[in-house]
Each structure stands twice: as C-alpha cells, then as structure tokens.
Design a protein around this nucleic acid. Structure first.
Length: 834
RNA sequence: GCCGGGAUGGCGGAACUGGCAGACGCAUCAGACUCAAAAUCUGACGAGGAGCAAUCCUCGUGUGGGUUCGAUUCCCACUCUCGGCACCA
C-alpha cells in the first residue's frame, strides 16, 4: 500500500492506492473547515432530529459497544440527510453520577479533574470515527450552564406540587458507611466490601410520577417504538385492577373483665384495616390478614402478650437489606394477637405480620386466601392456618381437596361462597366488589407497580437540589434568579457514616441566608439522581448557548419531538419513562406543546465478547482505536454494521474485517478506473437499480448488515470478469456507501469531479422499469419437490410455463401421469400435483 | 415462577406475504500471476450416495407431531439459550 496522499487522476488506468489514514484525516479537517456537520438550527426547512442516547464518559474511553451504537445512529442520520432533510445529530456527556464518583474515589482523582479529561478523550474518539456531530452544540450534564436548568426542572415540579419529601428506606453499608444503589447490592452484601447491607430510613425527595401512571401507560400504544420496549414499559408501570376491602378489627375478649384486656380495648379505637386485592371474588376464603412489618397500625392492634414477638420481628425485618427481603421466599411471620371480621362471612380471622407483604405496594396489608394464592398457601402451611376452597375448576367442587393453591381463573366458578356460588370468577369479582361496596366495606381500585421516583442521592457528584430550609419559613425553593446552586469543589467528597451528603460537612456552603426572610438557613445537602440529568437533555440540545431559557420556544417547536431516537435496551424502562414523564409535566406547565418526546425509538443490540459482557475485569474489552489504526474508521464502521442485525448485536470478533476492507478497496479501484466514454452495460444497470432500491429500504429499517451485503453483491456484478466499469455504474454506489463509510465516499465523490459534499448530493433514485428483465426464472415443483427451473417471458401464463417445463426432459420425466392439480404463482413457481 | 426474543453449513449471518434454503462475508481447498511469498484475480465449498464424466438421487433450518400441492416461515407439545420482571396481593 502506498503512503502518499491521494491525489487522484481520473485519466490514469493505474488505480491510486487507498490509504484510509490519509483520506480520513483529510476529510476530518475539511468537514471542520467547511462546517459540513453543522446543523441549520435557525433556518432549517426540513428539520430532522436524529438523537442518540448520550454516553457516560468513562475513563477507559470509547468501547466497541459505544461505537456500534454511534455508528448505527450516524448511518441513519446521514441517510436522512441524503434524503434531503436538515439533520441535527448532537452529542453529549452524561457525566454526573455515582459511577463517575465511585471511579474517582477508587483512583483518587477528583471528578472535576477526571471528567474533562474523559470528555476530551471521548470527543477525540468520536471525531475520529467520523460521526456527523455538530460540535457547537454539545451538552455536558456537569457543566453549570446545563445543571442550572436541571435545577430549574426540579423547581417546576416543586411548583406544581409534584416534588415532595418523605421517609424512605435505602440500602446502607455499615462498613463503607454509605448509601448504596440497588445495583450495588449483591446477594444482600455490599458489592465492594462484602458487608451485610441494612436498610435505613431517610427523608428524601420524590417526584409524583404515579400521578402520571395512567397517561404514561395509555400513550404507549401510539408510539413508534419496538414492541419489546413498549412491553417493558407496560410491565414496569404494572397496572392492576382490583378492590380495596375493609376488615374491622375486633377484640374477641372484649368485656371479659380482665384488667389487661380492658386496658387494650380502651386504647384501641374502632379500627379498619384496608387491604388491596385483585381477587375480591375469593373473600369467602380469606382466613387471615397479613400486615407488612412497617404497617402503621401494627403497633396499635398488637395485643399485650404478642408485643415482644412482634417488636422483635419488626426489628429483624428492618435489619434486612431491601434486596434479600424481596428475594428470599421462605415464609416467616408473627401473630399479632388481634382479630378482624371478614366482611363477607362475619367470621373472626387472625391478623398476622409477615415480610412477604410489602409496605410500598397496595395498602401494605392483604387478606390471605391460602386456597387460591401460592404465597398465602405456603404461609398457611408453615403456620397451620385454615385453608378453604372457594373456587373450583372443571370437574371439581367445594369438597375437592387442595394440594396446592388453585389459581386458574379462566374456567373456574365460585364454591362455598353463599349467594355467589357457581358464578364465573370474572363476573364474581365485579359482583362481590359491588356487594361489599353496598355494605361500605369496599370499593374498586386501580393499583400500579410504579412507585414515585426518588431523586435524592446522599452523594457529592450531582447537581445540588435547589431547596433551602429556614426555621421560620420552612422549605423554601431557591429562586430561579439564584440558579445555579453551584456544586462546591471540595476535596473530601467521600460519603461518611452520617448518612447525609458530604456537602453537609461544608458549613460555608451549607449555611445560606433564607431567600424569603434573610435569616440564616440551611441548604438541602442531597444532590439529584443522574436520571434527572438525562431526563431532559434532548430538550436542551437545539437551544445550547441560550443562557436565559432552558429551551427556546420557537427552536423547540421546530425541532421537537425527536424524530428518531436510538439507544440501549438497558434504558428501555427508566430513562425513557422518566423522560416521558418530565415532558408531560413540562407540557402541563405550558413550556412545551407536545407530551411525548420520542416519536420513534429503536434499541440497538449489545456487543459482547466471547459470550460475555465486556468488562475490564474480564480483560475482554475491544478498543476501537486499535482497529481504526489498523483498518481505518470507514472499514471498522462498516464492519461493525456488517457483523449482524443492528437491533440484535452479537459477539464481537474481528475474523471478517478483511472482507469489508477488500470491498472498499474494490470500490476505490472501480471509481478510479471508471470509463467516461461509451455506454453503461444494461445488465449491470439493472443490478444497480435493484441495489439502490434494496439499500434504501434496508437502511430505513436499520437492516444495515443486509444493506452492506447488497452493495458487496453489486460490486461483484460490476467487476465480473475483470471488466472496466463505466462511470454511471459506480457513481451512485458512492452515495449508497456514504452513510457507512463517509470519508472514502467524500474522497471518491470529489474524484468524480464534485465540489460539494456527497452528503448534500441527494440519494440516488431507482427506475422501477429497470428492475426486472424480460425473462424471469420460475421454479417447477412436482409432487411438492423442486425439480428444476424454466426461463420464460415475464408475461407467461400458467399454460406457457407448463409447456416450457414439459420441454425440459429433466423436469418432464417426473410427470408420470395426468396432473391432479396445478398451482401457479405468477413470477415465482409452478407446482404440479400428481 | 411470569413475560418477551432466539436456535439455519466449519464460523458470522441471509431468505418478500407459506414458494428454488444457505445471499453476502470469513475460514478452508485448488488454480492463475510470481524466482518465491504477500497482495490481487479465478473457481470449489451443507451431509451422504451413484457415475469415467457432464450430471443425477436421498437427506437437511434445535426435538417430536400437525396443517398444506409446498413449511426456516403457520399451529400444538417439548429442549436449550439470551434478555426483562419477580413475595406486586
């Protein structure tokens, strides 16, 4: 390979050597000088917003999975540009968060030093990969000019009553003396030190996303998103329709005269326990109640002799970390000594407490129907509680014994349920609920699995929550004019055992005059969740540079909602849901005209290595720099896309990369050797038009691997028999390949005599009349087996094809009698049934 | 446990709406060029069998059934695998 720069001479027969390093450097510089990649934010006539999930800039730099995603988005964006759109493909950095902070702690470098370094390195790598980024409009979540507006977003929610404070459990590592995210807990132990994790209750800020549950759920249907992502969102929201039922707490020994009992009944007012159930129909089988150990009524109802046992159990439950509690299925629990009346039967049933009932779902209390719920059945067996059958399937009746919980509800009818006997389950649910409602003992209720979004982090590396606490004025939001609340640059950012943020140790920052009364007050010392940073960044991109507003009204109207969003499936639930929620809130506050931010979303697959996720500890990380050094960015990009379906990802191996390089080499040679004189070959032109059609269709549906294959196939036709291609036969291929291999495409486009960028040249069109020839090949099946093909005219009828088939001895010999039936699929096949 | 994907040559993968399975690429083998090698170009390449040969036959898309003139594609029952959720009442 020659090392001199490409100064092509179209007249020469000798192809000039293709040196990717030179070509790519040349065009990187030229794009920069000419502003080729700058988006026409203000005067676009056909705006197209091609968004990519912005990455976390890790210290290791870009990994091959990042590049796979970026390239896939870049191809789509460049394709849209070739289609004539004014494309905006921005890039940014999600640089706040626990991930960065932990890494900084580990290597002993302050995040304010580390992050800019990582950002610079990422930027270099992304530029080198030839991504069509408008570098004038980047976002860095750790930049005060960005997080000023993240804090503003918080204030908008606060204003609307959607931000509130409450106590909530967090994972606490007693050794590291820090709050842990759920992902940092492995099997009940701290992932770093291995200590047993406990739960602690802290006052935290929440966003009322549950108010939007129904809207978030209903809108899913209208989104152009892949089904898996939509299903994941629906599951996460987890709507379930059921009923809340009331059970009156009753003291069975009331009036028995014992002093102890008398004392209890005096302190105990009339109380109801409300439970949530999706199976109101089974109420006749409810043989006990269970309260979560955190249930507020638990202490009130517990009888004197059970107090110690219940207290001990609550203590034990609180010691457990949040994860283990939910994953250990062994049933434990304690009797409270209290009883409640079943509103359907009037029977007194015992009230227990057990950790299999979670305070955060429903009402924190359940009616247990061991006959028809697996968990209740298990619990009833452990503690020897009565099990009653109230539902029977086909061939069963009220006396059929229960060896396990019977949970089928499709072909089942009620039994042992008085006036509701023999009703199908579905119908009974409604009737029983209505009946209980008439007795003031219940009502239909919808419940969601979705919880309010806890945004407090007792950490350093995030935007401070813009709230001030004043002894006189209470909770005071920081006035918008005083934003941003700057994150102070403190050296000791390690969390300690106080359970509060490191910021609390800095009095000079922590003490602040109250914005309302001016007296000394205290800042909120928690920072906000990284998901808040990333929950609105797509609104910022087009308005980057504006310091007076988070997003400009007119600009936003022009560019949003996002036309196409590409990102990883790991964010299919939380990030997308939070972004949707914040967009809805902004719309309700009058800041936006739309409520769904991402019209179209597609998740790319994950690139793994040797069947495992790439990680430093496994030593299987692929560094794109090495491959770009060896093969060039164009080859590497195209190779990544050729590896397999973009939406599936796959195992990275470099075995086939030489094939892609050969393809680009051949394209290079063909363009340089292309003849201007004479006419293009008709057969080749037919193949060309078919290729233009296929590549366009494939790229639109992100089927990049087959698009590359189609272009390779065409190159084989073009060069068959070492023929010299005509200029008209290769010119459109340069445009087709441009989204995949932008540098070489620009170079070849200029070799072909063009001044402007290939990306402003438009997408080639195909002539449908050229797609097929006059003759077509039709397969002939006899007795269901393919026995050969015949070449016939395009317009051939069944009889023509049959006649043609019979003239071919190798086919005709299989026709041993009179055909019983003949199936003819025009243009495809003829099937003769004997 | 529940909800989704997926399984096709030595390997990655392709196949429209049920219509010639294995496109494209890698690897391998053979040939051309070369003193030689690399690069490049040409050809072969699912398995088994028949034939001197051109060629022909049988089997073949995870397993077992089914629908159909015809199934990688649709239906039923499984196996394995990847991902998500998971004591959610």
């Amino acid at each position: 390979m020659t090392d001199h720069p490409a100064t092509p001479d179209v007249q020469r027969d000798e192809p000039v050597g293709y040196d990717p390093a030179v070509v790519e450097r040349t065009w990187r510089d030229r794009w920069q000088q000419r502003g080729t990649n700058r988006a026409k934010i203000a005067d676009a006539t056909k705006p197209y917003y091609a968004l990519l999930m912005f990455p976390y800039p890790s210290a290791e730099g870009l990994h091959v999975g990042n590049l796979f995603a970026f390239t896939g988005n870049d191809i789509y964006a460049r394709f849209q540009r070739l289609q004539g759109f004014d494309v905006f493909e921005p890039f940014g950095f999600d640089a706040f968060g626990i991930h960065s902070e932990n890494y900084a702690l580990k290597v002993g470098v302050h995040p304010t030093e580390m992050i800019p370094r990582n950002v610079a390195n990422f930027t270099r790598q992304v530029q080198r990969a030839g991504i069509m980024v408008d570098w004038d409009r980047t976002v860095d979540t750790t930049d005060p000019s960005y997080y000023k507006w993240t804090q503003w977003v918080f204030l908008q929610l606060y204003k609307q009553g959607l931000a509130f404070k409450k106590k909530a459990a967090v994972n606490w590592c007693p050794n590291d003396k820090t709050v842990l995210a759920n992902e940092q807990v492995e099997g009940g132990k701290c992932e770093r030190c291995g200590a047993e994790v406990e739960q602690r209750f802290l006052e935290q800020w929440f966003f009322r996303i549950t108010d939007y549950a129904e809207r978030l759920l209903n809108n899913i249907e209208g989104l152009d998103w892949s089904n898996t992502t939509r299903t994941a969102q629906r599951t996460w929201i987890g709507k379930s329709e059921g009923a809340e039922l009331k059970f009156r707490v009753v003291n069975p020994f009331e009036g028995a005269g014992s002093a102890a009992v008398h004392e209890t009944s005096e302190t105990m007012a009339v109380q109801d326990i409300t439970v949530f159930t999706t199976r109101a129909d089974t109420i006749f089988g409810a043989t006990y109640l269970v309260l979560s150990p955190e249930h507020p009524l638990l202490e009130d109802i517990t009888s004197g002799d059970q107090r110690d046992a219940v207290a001990a159990y609550r203590q034990q439950a609180s010691k457990q970390d949040l994860i283990t509690r939910k994953t250990t299925k062994t049933k434990t629990g304690v009797f409270t000594g209290a009883y409640a009346a079943n509103p359907a039967t009037g029977a007194l049933i015992p009230i227990w407490t057990a950790d299999y009932v979670l305070m955060e779902y429903g009402t924190g209390a359940i009616m247990a129907v061991p006959g028809h719920d697996e968990r209740d059945f298990e619990f009833a067996q452990v503690f020897d509680l009565p099990i009653v059958r109230v539902v029977a399937g086909t061939g069963q009746d009220g006396r059929t014994p229960l060896a396990e919980a019977y949970t089928d509800d499709a072909d089942a009818r009620l039994v042992n349920s008085q006036q509701f006997n023999d009703r199908p389950v579905d119908e009974a649910k409604r009737h029983v609920t209505a009946w209980l409602e008439s007795k003031f003992a219940g009502k239909p209720v919808v419940n969601y699995r979705l919880h309010d979004w806890c945004i407090s982090r007792q950490r350093y590396w995030g935007p401070p929550i813009p709230i001030i606490y004043c002894d006189d004025c209470g909770t005071v939001p920081v006035p918008e004019s005083q934003l941003p609340v700057l994150l102070p640059n403190i050296p000791d950012f390690k969390p300690d055992d106080s359970g509060i943020s490191p910021l609390a140790r800095h009095a000079e920052w922590f003490h602040v005059p109250c914005p309302t009364c001016g007296k000394q007050a205290r800042r909120e010392t928690d920072v906000s969740d990284t998901f808040l940073d990333s929950g609105w960044y797509f609104l910022r991109y087009p308005s980057v540079g504006r310091d007076d507003v988070p997003f400009d009204r007119e600009t936003t109207k022009k560019w949003l909602p996002v036309n196409s969003y590409i990102g990883g499936n790991e964010h299919a639930v939380l990030h997308l849901l939070y972004s949707r929620f914040l967009t809805m809130v902004m719309k309700d506050a009058g800041h936006l005209d739309f409520e769904e931010p991402f019209t179209k979303f597609r998740a790319h697959g994950m690139i793994i290595r040797d069947g495992a996720k790439m990680s430093k500890s496994k030593g299987n990380i692929v560094h794109p720099d090495d491959y770009i050094d060896a093969w060039g960015a164009d080859t590497f990009r195209t190779y990544l896309m050729f590896l397999g379906p973009f939406e599936e990802g796959g195992d990275f191996r470099d075995a086939g990369i030489s094939g892609v390089k050969r393809f680009l080499d051949r394209l290079w040679k063909s363009v340089h050797a292309a003849a201007i004189e004479g006419a293009p070959d008709a057969v080749v032109m037919r193949a060309l038009h078919a290729t233009i059609k296929k590549v366009g269709e494939d790229v639109s549906k992100l089927s990049y691997n087959t698009a590359v294959a189609a272009m390779m196939e065409y190159m084989n036709v073009l060069r068959r028999g070492e023929r010299h291609p005509h200029r008209d036969e290769v010119l459109p291929v340069v445009q087709l390949v441009a989204p995949f291999a932008p540098h070489i495409a620009e170079e070849l486009w200029s070799v072909l005599g063009h001044e402007q960028s290939v990306f402003d040249s438009g997408w080639p069109t195909f002539d449908p009349s050229l797609l097929g020839g006059e003759t077509i090949t039709i397969a002939v099946q006899i007795g269901g087996k393919t026995r050969g093909t015949v070449a016939v005219a395009k317009s051939a009828t069944q009889d023509d094809v049959y006649a043609a088939a019979m003239t071919d001895a190798s086919i005709a010999k299989f026709v041993t009698g009179t055909p019983k039936k003949i199936v003819f699929v025009p243009g495809r096949l003829l099937s003769i049934v004997l």
